[in-house]
Design a binder for these strands. Structure first.
Length: 555
DNA sequence: GTACTGGGCCAC
DNA sequence: AAACGTGGCCCAGTAC
């Protein structure tokens, strides 16, 4: 059963299996009842506007189609390139997602807001017609199952993103404060003042550079002061400073490290983002070109390892933390079908397997060479090792090289399930034609070549990163479904639930006595994700699972 | 005051 | 060891 939810003149209506719109008087009750009886696939314009409402009423759904996210995929996918949907001019479905309201100012009001109160551009859009156009585009695709699986996975991700924000990541403000105090000194009573330890480090730096007025947070100022002290640098990057021999360098590096922590995840971050013991960032599924998630607010996808100790499970609860080992190289092996590389990963450590095959001599070399293959390294050790890798694993390397060449020609490339790269922009195209035109100078030509190679590195990486993102979505969707089955009617936050996701890593918050069972589900879900993408191919996707009370102990 | 850019650095 | 992919956020500095 498929039920499209829409809004007519502000009031919610439902269209069941293509019938006539019926008014809905109590949305939560309507959805709960249909969900119980039929578990339909719910179709709505934007999960971020509908689903929080339902969650706050205690209603979860199993499946949906997020029409906006699906639209973005189908518009650009090479698998649906000729469709009516792909060739139409841009419309309201192409507008970027609205950010959700901030939790602090709202204190729950977010979940009471009706979608039509949010000035959403999608109010002008017709999800019923759009959904029909999407079905038409999928049906006409060469392999409808492939793209349909991507749409389902992307939509499952949209549900998960809202659920994770709703549940929140357990965060101990007390523990966070003690971590900060231990490394920076106590919180200054005046906002903006430097904590004691930071101030002492700065005093030392100023003294040793003989520069009492130095502003260490200004790269320009810092380069000048270092110059006066006889240290010639063109930037203040840590890895460059580390090469210098001078008594000011060590405290300066320490200062930079701590200043960064204070600025980005210090006490003001805590005040702003942690409410009632939960961190609720805004996750943005499909927020990057490759299909990886983005996030906004609180920097959820860059939580420094230093403060992960503040992520502490509730009493009687624990975390199951899992990450996929060497995900991207394994994805490369599987999607290229390179039997040798798949075999190298079969025993456990893929890089060790590459060494065992005789392609390179050390594990480090294997790792650097693989990263180089996926990122497009040309220089250094990584660049030198590439030919060895290409000899040992011709199928895998040919695939990334082909993707790079396609990008250099300005063509699009496509992931396993059908997400395609954006075409290069107008500026890129015109600099290409200038670079190879009749009046081109040597500079024009070399700039054009440089930009072409750069776009090639993007497309090279796109197919691997994008397919890895698809695997992660399938993994997480499978975990979610398994957890929902185990919940047996309990509310989201009363039973094991996902609370964090980081590209190839998930965190489940779960009652202590369920941890072992959940850990098993997480492993099985990884196998399921592999089969969803690659069928019966014997590619392994091992996951490392830890049961821990704090995220800091996960690895 | 707001808007934007570049440098720098965190995560994967 | 070096600077090769995807992001977000903070600060300084500048333009309005």
């Amino acid at each position: 059963m498929i039920i499209v939810l829409d809004r007519l003149a502000g009031a919610p209506v439902a269209v069941v299996d293509g019938g006539h719109p019926e008014p809905i008087f109590d949305l939560a009750a309507f959805v709960a009842e249909r969900e119980r009886a039929h578990s339909p696939r719910w179709v709505w314009d934007d999960t971020r506007t509908w689903y929080p409402l339902l969650l706050s009423a205690g209603v979860r759904v199993e499946r949906c189609f997020d029409v906006r996210l699906c639209h973005a995929i189908l518009r650009s996918s090479s698998l649906t390139a000729g469709s009516r949907l792909a060739t139409a001019p841009p419309g309201p479905w192409d507008a970027p997602a609205l950010p959700p309201a901030r939790p602090r100012e709202n204190a729950g009001a977010l979940f009471d807001l009706l979608p039509e109160e949010r000035h959403d551009p999608l109010l002008q859009a017709d999800p019923i017609a759009e959904f029909a156009a999407q079905r038409e585009a999928v049906a006409a695709a060469a392999e409808p199952g492939r793209i349909d699986r991507l749409l389902a996975a992307e939509s499952a991700g949209a549900l998960i993103a809202v659920e994770m924000r709703f549940a929140g990541l357990p965060w101990s403000a007390e523990r966070h404060d003690s971590i900060l105090t231990a490394v920076l000194g106590p919180r200054p009573s005046v906002d903006g003042a430097r904590p004691a330890r930071l101030q002492r480090l700065l005093d030392v730096v100023r003294e040793r550079l003989d520069s009492p007025e130095l502003n260490p947070d200004s790269p320009v100022d810092l380069v000048k002061a270092l110059g006066v002290a006889g240290l010639q640098v063109t930037s203040t990057r840590s890895w460059e400073l580390r090469k210098l021999k001078h008594p000011a360098i060590e405290p300066l590096l320490e200062y930079k490290k701590l200043a960064r922590l204070l600025a980005t995840n210090g006490w003001s971050w805590l005040d702003e983002w942690v409410v009632d013991g939960r961190f609720r960032p805004d996750y943005v599924p499909g927020g990057t070109a490759t299909g990886r998630w983005a996030s906004s607010g609180g920097g959820a996808l860059q939580l420094p390892k230093q403060i992960r100790g503040a992520v502490i499970a509730d009493p009687g609860w624990t975390f199951v933390v899992a990450d996929a080992s060497q995900l991207e190289p394994r994805i490369l092996a599987a999607m290229s079908g390179d039997r040798g590389m798949i075999e190298a990963g079969a025993a456990g450590d893929l890089y060790a397997g590459i060494v065992a095959s005789g392609a390179v001599e050390t594990r480090d070399q294997a790792k650097v060479a693989m990263l180089g293959a996926m990122y497009g390294a040309t220089t250094g050790e990584s660049g030198r090792l590439m030919p060895k890798l290409a000899r040992a694993y011709p199928g895998a390397i040919r695939m990334v090289e082909d993707a790079a060449r396609a990008g250099e020609r300005g063509e699009i490339v496509t992931t396993r399930l059908g997400r395609s790269s954006p075409p290069p922009g107008l500026a890129w195209r015109s600099s290409q034609s200038e670079g190879y035109g009749e009046n081109a100078t040597a500079t024009d030509a070399s700039r054009a070549r440089g930009q072409a190679r750069s776009w090639g590195r993007f497309t090279r990486n796109f197919i691997v990163q994008g397919t890895a993102a698809e695997w992660a979505l399938c993994w997480m969707a499978s975990i979610r479904r398994r957890l929902q089955d185990r919940a047996a009617g309990r509310r989201l936050t009363e039973s094991a639930h996902l609370v964090f996701f980081l590209h190839d890593e998930i965190v489940v918050h779960c009652p202590l006595d369920e941890a072992e069972g959940v850990a098993l589900e997480v492993r099985e879900a990884a196998g399921e994700a592999g089969r969803l993408l690659f069928g019966a191919l014997p590619a392994a996707f091992p996951v490392t699972v830890a049961i821990v009370d704090t995220y800091a102990d996960a690895k």
